[in-house]
Nucleic acid binder design. Structure first.
Length: 946
RNA sequence: GCGGGAGUGGCGGAACGGCAGACGCACCAGGUUUAGGUCCUGGCGCCCGAGAGGGUGUAGGGGUUCGAAUCCCCUCUCCCGCACCA
């Protein structure tokens, strides 16, 4: 049977790749080829060829090991960083590249709830599978540094970092976190007075602790959450459907306040914003972070409002346009605003317009009805009628502090309770939403900024002189803002202010599969940090991983976490080493969110076995430290999907900055350079019923698609089991080999662009590697074909050096697709000139240049070329400048912008020579006329205008 | 709606403001082969032409320039993010 016998015995095939690849993987592992030496500690190795060399830390966003395993889309970024790291290693750098696992997370827990399988077990199994899949790809990881967030040896330090955050406060004057002990001593010394002026010594211990706890960077607070009694758990916004039910189980979800751990990330808002400027990140991601932080500057203004004949209060608003306050002709409160009930009038005032009342007899009825209607609206409905402005008058008037006029107060759902103060001053002249509302409710509109003459719109948001604004008239917006802000402060009506969209980070989860908090509570109910020596607080095994569930409609329930049922673990007697002996405590039974482990994993790669510290300071400084004064320091290249643009990257930056403030790291940002790889997408096919059919069995005929005899329709999107279009790296390695797979992934297109997977195109990369193989190995005899003393013809040598030059800069710029194209070109050229063999120097350079992308075949060929050592540390080829310059240059000759001819001249020909040659070449087209203009771009082009 | 990015052959994609379509897939032709496949060589945007060659062409329209896929303006389409953010 034919096939096998027909193929030459020494051809590079999938079978041969399948033999070569594991052999080299074993050899790399046994030899520790990709071990990166640390400056100090157990991973230091002064004899290593790269010990003390210029370092490079490349990092991938580590995966959550799901039960589905990897598909061909997952390793794209990993292969990219691997190529870059291997290239840089050959170019002389000490390269650290490791891969760990983000092991805590919801899917394993949910699987555990369903099956009773311990999440540790399934996660371990998944990690094993991931490791096997990744190993097969020949990724040059330092295997000693593969951290797993669920291992106690790792989360011990996650808990330790939590304690550092717990034991810190943010000092706004120094703009940094400081140890909480320093705050306490400020209070003790009297340098910092208490809020009520009582001396510190007169406060009870509980009072002192409450004061201090309020300063901590992580603290317990009531926070609004999505409480789902039917599931017994709090849900993330993403887990709540548009109509307010749980994604899983379809139970009602209630917005409720619950006691939660929070992290004071808002204290770092300004630094998180400013330091973006120091980072080499995609502008898109920086912008997303800026928007997420949402800094706006303006002023808080209090609008006096009478709550009884003798008592008045202020409605506090935030505005970015205090300069427009003279145009504030009414106010709007969110329906849920706390002052509404106090302010609602008993009867409609005489000045009430009909359309303000909503048709109700009293303000009270109108408010109740409006609130009810607003509350029953789903988010979908709210969005659908987003532009319709509705609201009702509440029968009360506030005083505009600038004009002294009484202005009506409305409630309307276009003002959000959760944003700002939940109230606005409405300035229809300068705000589109206010203008719409004013038109709908017949409210006065006063322009306070003069629009340009040609302006024919409604609200005017642009620049212009202030008008109808008393003492502000004539000032530009900026000056008017400054002046009114000063006036508000002088008259006690408000003050300049900066607000953020960013909220503090809700850090506790009512779940099982996460890091326990290193926190206990004493008899006061206040949190107490466990001493460092008691870490890790290990996650106990429990019988039941699910939280207690309740009547789905009973919102008046409280979560009961899986850990809370484990009373042996919860109730403890401990000696905290504070001189108070053994005391009874109960443990915190929430666990940390999945983000916790990923907030600092890159640091643990640096020193994975250190049991004295989360990372040794010298190791951190070597791998992450700043290179110059303005440099943030951090990972040299961080590659991952843009889906982590905000949360993960913001949380990790926040933790890193706290560690920096406390002096534990030398870098003030964790990721100096960020790169978002694109996604590999795939076609999926559905039959006439809309059911997905296996994509690999669909055939194309004349642009139509068939599954068996049935025509199916094609759609384009993610790769996934449910879409029946998954292609796995395992399959690709089996059919073509890992090197082919790697080359294909790298050559498909730029790393940061999403593109479709095309299994049938993989063959091109396979053929390329076969050709390279054939250049070195005789397919029939297995003999090496390199000429020892073969001369390279000049043209080939020029191409060789041009390729070296181009591949180097492409690799440097992560342009692997064009690097591969250049290698293919060179290979094709060498194939064309090969007789009995090819010159050794050309083929060796080719093999070395191929090594970062297709490492196994490169190692194999390198060995067959007579080298004993791995090529991992072989210098990457360097182009000889003498061969980069061509002897002659061919100039295209343009006449009136169209290329009409080309002339070849000596490379060093001067402009006059080029001009003469070009004119001679197109003489017939000029018909004897003198050209009006001749432009010569040296080395490029001649352009003639007639 | 706002903000950001992108539109190049049948497909994935190349192209410091300077010969548009590198490289690969698919396809076509030739060679090798008993045949198929492999391998080697060549062709391959569109239109006209037997050919040499000519015209035209980078979503559409306008502009800047000796010269535009590339820079500017308008329009359209697609993708991503945010979504009444005061």
């Amino acid at each position: 049977m034919s096939e096998a016998t027909d193929i030459p015995p020494f051809r590079y095939t999938a079978a041969l790749a399948g033999e070569i690849e594991p052999r080299w993987q074993d050899r790399w592992e046994e030899a520790g080829t990709f071990h990166a030496p640390n400056p100090t500690g157990d991973l230091a190795d002064p004899s290593h060829p790269r010990a003390g060399a210029d370092k490079l830390f490349v990092l991938d966003m580590f995966p959550y090991p799901s039960g589905e395993g990897l598909h061909v889309g997952h390793p794209l970024g990993y292969i990219g960083t691997d190529c870059y790291g291997r290239f840089k290693r050959m170019a002389g750098r000490n390269v650290l590249h490791a891969m760990g696992f983000d092991a805590f997370g919801l899917p394993a827990e949910q699987y555990a709830v369903q099956t009773g399988q311990h999440p540790r077990k399934t996660t371990e199994e998944n990690i094993d599978r991931y490791r096997a899949q990744l190993r097969m790809l020949g990724l040059a990881y330092d295997p000693r540094r593969s951290v797993v967030t669920m291992h106690p040896g790792y989360y011990r330090w996650t808990q330790w970092i939590f304690l550092q955050i717990f034991n810190s406060w943010y000092d706004p004057r120094q703009r940094k976190a400081r140890p909480i002990a320093e705050l306490i001593s400020e209070y003790e010394s009297g340098e910092r007075p208490t809020d009520d002026g009582r001396p510190w010594t007169e406060l009870s211990e509980v009072e002192r602790r409450r004061i201090v706890d309020d300063y901590r960077l992580t603290y317990v607070s009531e926070a609004p959450v999505n409480w789902c009694p039917g599931l017994g758990t709090v849900l993330a916004n993403e887990e709540v459907t548009a109509d307010g039910r749980s994604d899983r189980g379809n139970f009602p979800v209630f917005k409720r306040s619950l006691r939660q751990w929070m992290m004071r990330i808002t204290a770092y808002a300004d630094r998180l914003l400013e330091d973006l400027d120091t980072l080499d990140w995609p502008e898109k991601v920086k912008l997303m972070q800026r928007n997420w932080i949402g800094r706006s500057t303006g002023a808080h203004i209090g609008f006096p409002v009478r709550v009884s004949p003798i008592d008045s209060k202020r409605i506090r608003v935030f505005t970015t346009r205090p300069d427009t306050v003279f145009g504030a002709t009414y106010m709007v409160l969110a329906p849920e605003h706390e002052l509404v009930d106090e302010l609602v009038a008993n009867a409609w005032p005489a000045s009430t317009k009909d359309r303000w009342t909503g048709g109700y007899k009293t303000p009270r009825e109108a408010v109740d009805a409006y609130r009810k209607a607003a509350a029953s609206k789903t988010d979908v409905e709210r969005q659908a009628e987003a532009r319709e402005k509705t609201g009702v008058f509440i029968g009360a008037y506030a005083t505009n502090p600038a004009t002294g006029e009484a202005i009506p107060v409305f409630i309307a759902d276009y003002v959000l309770a959760g944003y700002g103060t939940g109230a606005i001053m409405a300035v229809p002249g300068q705000d589109e939403r206010d203008w719409e509302f004013a038109e709908a409710y017949d409210l006065p509109i006063v322009r306070t900024v003069q629009p340009p003459e040609d302006f024919d719109g409604k609200a005017y948001l642009g620049e212009g002189p202030a008008i109808h604004s008393g003492f502000l008239d004539g000032l530009n917006v900026k000056d008017a803002k400054a002046k009114i802000t000063q006036w508000l402060e002088d008259n006690g009506y408000g003050e300049g202010a900066i607000t953020y969209r960013l909220r503090d980070w809700l850090f506790s989860r009512q779940r099982y599969w996460g890091e326990p908090f290193p926190i206990v509570y004493d008899e006061t109910g206040l949190p107490v940090a466990l001493p460092e020596e008691m870490l890790p607080v290990e996650l106990p095994d429990v019988a039941d991983f699910s939280p207690k569930t309740f009547d789905p409609d009973d919102s008046d329930t409280d979560p009961e976490t899986p850990l809370s049922r484990n009373s042996d673990w919860v109730e403890v007697e401990l000696d905290l080493g504070d001189g108070r002996g053994r005391r009874r405590f109960h443990r915190e039974t929430n666990v940390m969110p999945q983000w916790a482990g990923s907030c600092w994993y890159e640091l643990r790669y640096l020193d994975p076995n250190n049991d004295k510290s989360f990372v040794d300071a010298e190791n951190e400084r070597y791998w992450m430290g700043p290179r110059h004064a303005e440099d943030s320091g951090g990972v040299d290249l961080y590659v991952g999907g843009v889906e982590h643009a905000v949360l993960h990257l913001l949380y990790a930056r926040f933790w890193h900055k706290v560690l920096y403030d406390l002096g534990y790291v030398s870098s003030f940002e964790p990721y100096r350079r960020l790169f978002n790889q694109g996604y590999i997408q795939a076609y999926a096919f559905t039959d006439e019923r809309g059911v997905y059919v296996p994509a690999e069995q669909v055939v194309e005929r004349d642009g139509r698609y068939f599954y068996g005899e049935r025509e199916v329709s094609r759609e384009y999107g993610k790769m996934g089991k449910s879409l029946k279009n998954v292609v796995t790296p395992d399959e690709m390695c089996r059919v073509y080999g890992a090197d082919t797979f790697r080359v294909y992934e790298m050559s498909m297109g730029p790393l940061d662009v999403s593109r479709p997977w095309e299994t049938r195109a993989v063959i091109g990369s396979y053929r390329f590697l076969q050709r390279v193989w054939r250049l070195v190995v005789d397919e029939d005899t297995g003999q090496t074909r390199a000429f020892e003393d073969g001369r390279i013809d000049d043209a080939t040598n020029r191409l060789l050096h041009k390729t070296i030059d181009g591949v180097r800069s492409d690799m440097e710029g992560l342009r692997f697709n064009t690097a591969v194209a250049k290698l293919i070109e060179l290979t094709n050229r060498l194939t064309a000139i090969a007789g009995d063999g090819v010159p050794r120097e050309a083929v060796e350079a080719l093999v070395l240049m191929l090594a970062p992308t297709a490492p196994h075949i490169a190692e194999e060929l390198w060995q067959r070329l007579g080298h004993d050592e791995s090529l991992a540390y072989e210098p990457f080829p360097v182009a000889d400048p003498a061969w980069l310059a061509a002897e002659t240059v061919t100039y295209p000759v343009q006449v009136n912008g169209k290329v009409r001819a080309r002339v070849e001249v000596e490379a060093d020909a001067d402009e006059a020579t080029v001009r003469e040659a070009a004119l001679a070449e197109i003489a017939d087209q000029l018909a004897g006329k003198e050209p009006r203009k001749v432009i010569i771009v040296p080395g490029r082009m001649v352009s003639i205008v007639t």
